[in-house]
Design a protein around this nucleic acid. Structure first.
Length: 691
DNA sequence: ATACGACGGTTTTTT
DNA sequence: ACCGTCGTAT
């Protein structure tokens, strides 16, 4: 989503004005909302009404005569952008309907907007393509092969790792050697080759006229720092808000500073103890340095928690207390009562899955709908066993942070074709599509591709030259694609273009996949969305920057009335809350992840991650520790290790928890007997009451 | 020569 | 789940 907040502007303050939202705020919140004259840092602990305060401050600025379109609202994640905009809309609508739109969205989507507008000044084609991380990794892989790293004996990092190194270097604006030494020490010996490869990647992007996510921030900063364009951009806004400021990286901070150029109209909100994006070069040092970066800044701290019960906060505070914080906060609940969080020790992930299902269903029977409950985990595969069990029991769930729509193979195929419509010579797109054909592998695909490029240079009929290299049986499949591309024109309506291309790729999808019908139906949604977009390049860019989580996202709001359990990684859950929260796999090695247990800073971040997870819960919180975990996720074998509870669950923390040892589990015997094979014979689902 | 399936080893988290 | 390697089929 290109989050454009449509905020309604309240009536001008005429004495009787729209002040009722102010009366609902506590003293500190109100001080923050009505602050004037200097940059403002709001240190908002978890659940302290951060979003409420930002929205109220936006409303207050509007009421004081600031025009909505002169307010810029920056968030870090798309979910936060959505949440913020929905809340702001609801609050401001209570004032007075006089339309105006706040400019807002994630850093990357807002950057994209400005970069496209000023593409010329940056030496980019206005129709430039956007590489999502998958595309970027594929391009790196191409360069990696060209550098001959594919066949070499010495192990060479994979595309994903290379992209991580690149990203950390660019976002942190630090020498790559430092980044490698610190975060990828095992690759120290290869740093010269890695550096050469990443330089080639940068050159290739330039040559192709494409921009990756990191470039987006780089280009925006360059615009903001420019002597001519910078002041123009800065002059567009009277006030800039930055949410989750603890997760900003150096590039983002520099951009915001450049956009203010000494103007005090800036409010940032964050909590240094919820900084969990260090791996992406974010640093809580930025929030700690706010007072240096923005002259004369004021700091206001919010500690009254409106979300959780005190027993949950006691445990969370105890975790927080283990670390040194430069801005100490201790959350206080606004209401009394509540149960202690539970620490559940069970046998393994299967037992864990059984228990979670059981508790979730019990809670539902007591009236707590599924959507008010969530299951969080450190990594997205921690919930694998649970997903099996939920499916088996027919408990509907939606998973965030799992396989994304755009990562599904058939969607990638279609997106490759859309990309070819923009640029006929897109080698990666061709390479992908050609290999879908029967009897075509990397060698033949590359040969055909070489012919295509060569023929184009000679202005010959490139397509018929290339298709000669393909096996006979492949031709009827690929010919419609060639034909559709030949007749496609940029000036045609986007909807028509996309529909024709979808039709052309039909045979290819049909022959490539066993279950092609649902896959094709899946692509219809994409076509519908394209119909409402502007140009094809813009549609593609928005798709990359804000991909739908699943194909269901296109099909309107089927979830609106449905009840479903939320499964999410802790990272994706930040900023959200549920009545009941179950946190999976809280064993040492996962909290902290064994890979992050190297440096002190990494362990600190893992601790904050646990804190973030715990503070998502309103009333009920359970931490699960499967004591036995398996090395192979779906393994045929029974290789396993024994885990112990997270090192962060110290005695002091445990004193705040109710400890529950679950001896055995529901269907205990038999399931593990033959490795992890599960042969379920059950008529239970027949008797399930589907409400 | 090339494609493709089977198998074994594996550095999370997101824009 | 992905990626590289190896054996077999075409």
């Amino acid at each position: 989503m290109f989050a454009d907040a449509s905020l309604v502007q309240p009536r001008a303050p005429d004495g009787s004005g729209p002040a009722d939202w102010l009366s609902e705020l506590n003293a500190e919140q109100r001080r923050a909302v009505e602050h004037e004259g200097s940059p403002l840092l709001i240190l908002a602990g978890a659940g302290t009404g951060k979003t409420t305060t930002i929205c109220a401050r936006v409303a207050w600025l509007l009421a004081r005569g600031t025009q909505a379109e002169r307010i810029l609202l920056l968030t870090f994640t798309r979910r936060a952008a959505r949440e913020m905009i929905a809340r702001a809309r609801a609050l401001v609508e209570r004032a007075v309907p006089d339309a105006g739109a706040v400019v807002g969205g994630t850093f990357h989507s807002v950057a994209h907007r400005f970069v496209r507008r000023h593409a010329g000044a940056l030496g980019l084609d206005p129709g430039f393509g956007v590489l999502d991380p998958g595309d970027a990794a594929d391009l790196i892989d191409l360069v990696r092969e060209e550098h001959g790293h594919a066949e070499r004996r010495t192990r060479f990092p994979r595309k994903g790792t290379l992209l991580d190194i690149y990203s950390a270097t660019v976002n942190g604006q630090r020498p790559m050697t430092e980044v490698v030494a610190e975060r990828f020490p095992w690759l120290d010996e290869l740093r010269d080759e890695i550096a050469a490869l990443l330089k080639a990647y940068v050159a290739r992007k330039r040559a192709l006229g494409v921009v990756d996510f990191d470039d987006m921030l780089m280009y925006w900063r360059a615009l903001a720092l420019d002597d001519v364009i910078g002041p123009q951009l800065a002059g567009r806004f009277d006030h800039i808000f930055v949410d989750e400021y603890q997760d900003t990286n150096g590039l983002q901070v520099e951009t915001v500073r450049a956009l203010r150029r000494g103007d005090p109209g800036v409010t940032v909100v964050g909590d240094d103890f919820q900084a969990i994006y260090g791996f992406r070069a974010a640093s809580a040092d930025h929030i700690r340095s706010f007072e240096e970066h923005f002259q004369g800044a004021t700091v206001i701290t919010l500690e009254r928690n409106y979300r959780s019960t005190q027993p949950i906060l006691d445990a969370a505070n105890e975790i927080a207390g283990q670390a040194d914080q430069s801005y100490p906060k201790r959350l206080r609940a606004n209401r009394d009562g509540g149960q202690a969080p539970r620490l559940v020790l069970c046998r393994d992930d299967t037992a864990e899955a059984q228990l979670v299902c059981q508790r979730v269903l019990e809670a539902r029977e007591e009236g707590l709908e599924l959507r008010a409950q969530a299951v969080l985990s450190r990594t997205s595969h921690d919930s694998a066993a649970l997903e099996v069990e939920l499916t088996r029991r027919r408990i509907p769930f939606v998973k965030y942070g799992g396989l994304r729509y755009l990562e599904a193979s058939h969607v990638k195929d279609f997106v490759a074709l859309l990309r070819l419509a923009q640029r006929r010579s897109d080698e990666l797109a061709w390479f992908r599509l050609l290999q879908r054909l029967d009897g075509v592998g990397p060698v033949i695909a590359r040969r055909a591709l070489r012919e295509l490029v060569a023929a184009e240079r000679e202005h010959a009929d490139a397509w018929s030259a290339a298709r000669n290299h393909l096996p006979d049986r492949a031709r009827p499949i690929i010919d419609p694609v060639g034909k559709a591309l030949a007749t496609d024109r940029p000036e045609q309506p986007t909807r028509l273009r996309v529909e024709r291309l979808l039709e052309a790729i039909g045979p290819l999808i049909a022959t490539s996949y066993a279950n092609s019908a649902p896959r094709l139906a899946d692509l219809d949604g994409l076509t519908r969305a394209a119909a409402t977009a502007g140009s094809l390049p813009e549609f593609m860019a928005e798709l990359a920057l804000d991909p739908p989580a699943s194909s269901a996202d296109w099909a309107g709001p089927p979830h609106r009335d449905e009840d479903y359990l939320v499964l999410s990684t802790v990272h994706s859950a930040k900023g959200l809350e549920w009545d009941a929260v179950h946190l999976l796999a809280v064993y040492d090695g996962n909290f902290p992840a064994c890979l992050s247990a190297g440096s002190g800073a990494e362990i600190e971040e893992e601790r904050r991650l646990l804190y973030v997870a715990m503070t998502r819960a309103r009333r009920s919180l359970a931490l699960y520790v499967p004591t036995r975990y398996y090395h192979r996720p779906n393994g045929r074998d029974d290789a396993h290790g024994y885990g112990k509870p997270s090192r962060f669950l110290t005695d002091r923390v445990r004193a705040c928890l109710e400890i529950e040892q679950v001896a055995s589990t529901d269907p205990p015997e038999g399931q593990r007997e033959t490795g992890r094979r599960r042969i379920a014979v059950s008529v239970d689902p027949l008797f399930d009451i589907v409400s």
